[in-house]
Computed example of a mutant assay.
Amino acid sequence: MIYSPKWSKAKKQLKSFTCESLSSRVDFQVINYRRAHDQLGRAVITVDKVEKLNMCTITAEREEYYRERAIRKQLDNFNFDDVFHNRDIQDEAHQMLKSEAIYGQYDFFFALEQYFNASVQDSLQSSDILIKILCLLDRRIGKRTLMKMNDTIASEHPLVQYFFKLRCEAENVRVFI
């Protein structure tokens, strides 16, 4: 599954949304492995050329398999014939991974689509860690919004907190975490 609007075009759009204070420090990369059975690889967000979020498809799929097995074990249900039940288990496992910030490359592309097609306010309210990270890097988020977020940021995932602190430091906004 290759990303449908070309990655180069999406990356250009993503970089155009990145705030000026971080545009030279933050980068987004997609690495595809041609010999992989599905030709997917990983997507990476780097800060100062250091990987901060690695969204590897193989890792995500392996972890999803383990989560599905754990759910089945907990339910004591190994009936693979019920398609709807199997889908529910898979969705539950996938949501568990997303809450732990374990993403596949396809999750990155899906989050990009949502982020590009939603307002900044909707993106900030998203329960998806990846969309919140993209939003925190967005030039359309101003200092006042960052200061308002100071109260609630402590309850966010550590990666969201990291990108919040990064943005605040870049914009000279005082952080209280």
Rank of each mutant, 00 (worst) to 15 (best):
M1Q: 11
Y3P: 05
Y3L: 13
K6A: 14
S8N: 14
K11M: 04
K11A: 05
Q13R: 14
S16T: 09
F17M: 11
F17K: 12
T18Y: 07
T18C: 10
E20I: 06
L22A: 02
S23H: 09
S23L: 15
S23Q: 13
S24K: 12
D27Y: 06
V30I: 11
V30N: 06
I31Q: 12
N32Y: 15
N32D: 15
R34E: 14
D38V: 08
G41H: 06
R42D: 08
R42P: 06
A43N: 05
I45F: 04
V47K: 03
D48S: 06
K49I: 10
K49H: 11
K49M: 11
E51W: 09
K52A: 09
C56S: 15
C56Q: 14
T59V: 12
E64S: 09
E64R: 15
E64P: 05
Y65P: 08
A70L: 07
R72D: 00
K73I: 05
D76G: 14
N77A: 09
D81V: 07
D82S: 05
V83I: 15
F84E: 15
H85I: 08
N86L: 04
D91G: 14
D91I: 09
A93V: 02
A93N: 01
S99R: 12
E100I: 11
I102D: 02
Y103F: 06
Q105V: 04
D107E: 03
F108D: 03
F110K: 07
A111F: 00
L112G: 00
E113Q: 14
N117M: 08
Q121W: 10
D122E: 14
S126Q: 01
S126Y: 01
S127Q: 10
S127P: 07
L130T: 01
I131A: 01
K132S: 03
L136V: 03
L137M: 05
R139I: 09
R139F: 07
I141T: 05
I141N: 00
I141Y: 00
G142I: 02
G142V: 03
K143M: 09
K143P: 08
R144L: 13
T145S: 06
K148E: 07
K148W: 10
M149P: 03
N150T: 08
N150R: 06
D151I: 15
D151H: 14
T152D: 10
I153W: 04
A154C: 13
S155D: 12
E156S: 07
E156W: 04
H157Y: 10
L159E: 06
V160A: 02
V160K: 04
F164V: 00
R167C: 01
C168E: 02
E169W: 15
A170F: 08
N172F: 13
R174S: 14
V175S: 03
F176V: 15
I177G: 06
I177T: 10
I177D: 10
